[in-house]
C-alpha cells in the first residue's frame, strides 16, 4: 500500500531518450525532458503527436522500446517505484468506472486502500465534487453525465488521491470557457497546496500560458522547444510559431 505521508512534496520526473513504436509506426522518436518537483509543466502539440502515449509511459502503463523514465532519479521500469509514490492521472476520456456511481468513482482510491473511514471518505468526495461544480451528483452513474462532467469527475478522482505527481491529459478539452477557468484554478491551487508536480497535456493555449511554469511543444514524436511561457512565445521555430498563432479567420478562407 502506498504511504500517505501528510504534506508530501511533489516528485521530479525525468524522461530520457524515450522511443516507442506501435506496429513499426514510430510514435515517440527520442523524447527528453525534465519536470522539476512542484512544477506545472505543460506539454502542447498537435493531435496525434504522441502526447497521450508519452503520459502513459510516465505512469507506467506503457513500456518504452528505448530510453527510460525516472521518478526522483529511480527508473520506473524497475522495482516498485510506482508503489512508493502517489501518482494520479486524468485520462483524456475520463476513464470512469461505468459500473460505479460518481461518488464511488471519486472515493475509489481511498476506499480500496482503506486510507480513511467511510464517513470521512463521503465527506471528502462531497467536498471535492462541490469544488468542481458537481455538487450532489454522487449517486449518478457515469453514463448519465455529459462529456464535460465526466472529465470533471475524473479530475475529482485524481484530486482526492492528493498525489505527488499528477498527469492531466487534456483536462479542458470538452469544457466550456467558464469550467475551463475553474479547472485551471484547481490545477494551480492543488499545486500550491501540496506542491504536487503537475504534467499537463493540452492544446488549450489559454490554459497552457495561464498555469504553466514551463512549456514544451511536441510535434511528431519529438520535442521542438522547452522553456518558460515567455521563452516559448519568443521562440523562432516556425512550427512552434504556427502552432501557437494559428487562428481561424473568415477572411483567410475567402481569399484562399
Amino acid at each position: 500500500m502506498s504511504s500517505p505521508q501528510p504534506n508530501h512534496q511533489g516528485i521530479g520526473v525525468q524522461v530520457r531518450g524515450l522511443r516507442k513504436s506501435f506496429n513499426r509506426h514510430e510514435v515517440l522518436k527520442g523524447v527528453d525532458f525534465e519536470v522539476k518537483p512542484g512544477e506545472i509543466f505543460v506539454l502542447m502539440g498537435p493531435s496525434g503527436s504522441g502526447k497521450s502515449v508519452l503520459l502513459k509511459h510516465v505512469i507506467g502503463l506503457e513500456q518504452p522500446d528505448e530510453g527510460e523514465i525516472l521518478l526522483e532519479g529511480k527508473p520506473i521500469q524497475s522495482s516498485n517505484v510506482l508503489d512508493e509514490y502517489r501518482l494520479a492521472m486524468v485520462f483524456q476520456s475520463g476513464a470512469l468506472l461505468n459500473s460505479l456511481t460518481v461518488g464511488e468513482n471519486v472515493g475509489l482510491y481511498l476506499t480500496e486502500h482503506r486510507l480513511k473511514p467511510p464517513e470521512e471518505i463521503d465527506r471528502i468526495v462531497a467536498d471535492t465534487l462541490e469544488v468542481l461544480g458537481l455538487k450532489g451528483t454522487e449517486e449518478k452513474m457515469p453514463s448519465e453525465l455529459s462529456g464535460g462532467m465526466k472529465k470533471r469527475v475524473a479530475i475529482a478522482r485524481a484530486l482526492v488521491i492528493e498525489p505527488q505527481l499528477i498527469l492531466y491529459d487534456e483536462p479542458t478539452s470538452e469544457l466550456d470557457p467558464l469550467s475551463s477557468v475553474v479547472i485551471a484554478e484547481e490545477i494551480v491551487k492543488l499545486n500550491e497546496r501540496i506542491r504536487v508536480t503537475s504534467l499537463v497535456v493540452s492544446h488549450d493555449r489559454d490554459l497552457a500560458f495561464g498555469v504553466a511554469h514551463r512549456i514544451a511543444v511536441i510535434n511528431d514524436g519529438t520535442i521542438l522547444a522547452i522553456g518558460t511561457p515567455e521563452e516559448i512565445k519568443r521562440c523562432q521555430n516556425p512550427l512552434v510559431r504556427d502552432f501557437l498563432n494559428a487562428s481561424f479567420r473568415r477572411a483567410d478562407l475567402h481569399s484562399a
Binding site: 502506498s2 507506467g60 502503463l61 510506482l82 476513464a95 470512469l96 468506472l97 461505468n98 475509489l108 482510491y109
Partner: peptide, 25 residues
Amino acid sequence: AEIGSMRVYQEIDALRTMNISPIHY
C-alpha cells in the same frame, strides 16, 4: 464482456494508475 469493455475503455488503466490491481479488484 465486462472486463473486456473495462479494458477497451481504459478503466483498467485507470485502476492501475490508482495502484489498484485488476487481479485483486
